[in-house]
Simulated scan of single mutants.
Amino acid sequence: MVDGLVAGTDALPQLAGTRQRIAFVWLETDGRAPVRIVRTETSVWAFDREGGIREGLDESFIEVMRSIEPSDHSNQTVVQLAPRLSKKKVEREHRWELTKSEIDRIVRDIWPKSKQDSLKHLKGVSQRKPPLTSEARRAIGEIAEGFWKTSSAIDSLKETSLRGFVFEAQQRSKDDPGYEFLFRAIAEMGERRLEVLRRRRSDKGVWYALVEVTRWSDGIGEILERFHERCANRPEAIAAARRLLAEHANKFSTDVTVKAEIITDLEWNMRRDD
C-alpha cells in the first residue's frame, strides 16, 4: 500500500485533506519472525482531496532541496539566509521526533502479547496484489524478452508506414480473435508513436529539457541524477537543455556521461515515473 501511495496508484480517502505523522521502522528478522528494530525514521505526509500523497511528496522534496546550502562558500561575508529558513521549515513541517511512549507502542505492535497490542491496519483503494509465483514470473520474463524488438520495430517506422501499420494491426485484432488484445496493444503503440512524431514536427506545445548523469560499468549504465525543466515551446527547451548541460558538465568523467535531450510532453508523461 505504501508503494502504491508513493507511486500515485493508491490512496487513503479516509485521510483526505489531512496531515499525518508517519513512522518507518526497519526490522531485522529471522525467517519471518522479527528479532530487533534496526532503525527508525519519521516523516509527515500531506494527503490531497482524494487521499493521495504524490503532490505533497513533490512539495516536500522541493522544500528539502531549497534547504541545502550551496557548496560554494567563496564569499564568506554573504550570509545564506534563505536555505537556513527553509531548513527550519523542513524540520518544522516535515519531521518529528518519536517519543518513548510511541516507541513502546510500536514495540507492542511488533511483539504483541494480546490482541489489543496490534495496531489497526489501513487499506487503500487499489486491488490487493496477488502473489507472483515462480511459474508466473518465468512466464512474464519469457514473454517480455521480445518487447524491445516490438518497440524498436515500431519506432523505426516513418509516419506513412506507421499509418498502414496501425490500420493493419486494428484489422487483425478483428480478424484474429485469439490474438485480439495483442494486435490492439501494438496498434495503440503505433498510434502513440504517430502522435509523438506529429508533436515533434512543431515548435509549439509543451516540451521538456532533460539532462541525465549516468555511471557506466561493463557497458551497463546506472542513472545517478536526472534534471528537467518544463518549457512553453521547443526553442525554450533547447536553451534550457544547453543551460542544464553547462551546469552539470563538471560531473563528466571517465565512467560518467552527462547527456542532454529535449522531449515532447507526451514522451515526458511516458518516462517521468522512471
Rank of each mutant, 00 (worst) to 15 (best):
D175N: 11
E180H: 11
F167W: 10
L98C: 00
V166Y: 00
A144K: 15
N75V: 08
E195R: 07
G141I: 04
S134K: 13
L132M: 14
R128Y: 15
K174G: 01
G141N: 15
V90T: 10
Q171L: 14
I143H: 14
E145D: 14
R172H: 11
A169H: 07
D72P: 03
S67F: 04
T160V: 09
S86Y: 11
V125S: 10
L132C: 15
M65L: 13
D155K: 12
S202I: 03
R184D: 02
Q116P: 01
R95C: 06
I106S: 05
S74H: 05
R201L: 05
L85K: 13
R105K: 06
Q127G: 15
L132P: 09
R137G: 14
R199D: 03
G164E: 03
S173Y: 03
E135Y: 11
V90Q: 07
K204R: 11
E180F: 04
L194Q: 05
N75A: 08
R92F: 06
K204S: 10
F183S: 00
I68K: 07
I186L: 01
N75G: 00
K120Q: 10
L157E: 05
L132K: 12
Y179W: 11
R84V: 04
D175F: 10
R84D: 04
R184L: 03
P130A: 14
K204H: 08
R66L: 14
S202P: 01
L122Q: 04
R108S: 12
V125L: 07
S161V: 06
T77V: 06
A187V: 00
L98N: 01
K120T: 08
K129V: 15
S74G: 00
S86E: 12
D176P: 01
V78D: 02
A139L: 14
Q80C: 05
P112R: 05
K123F: 08
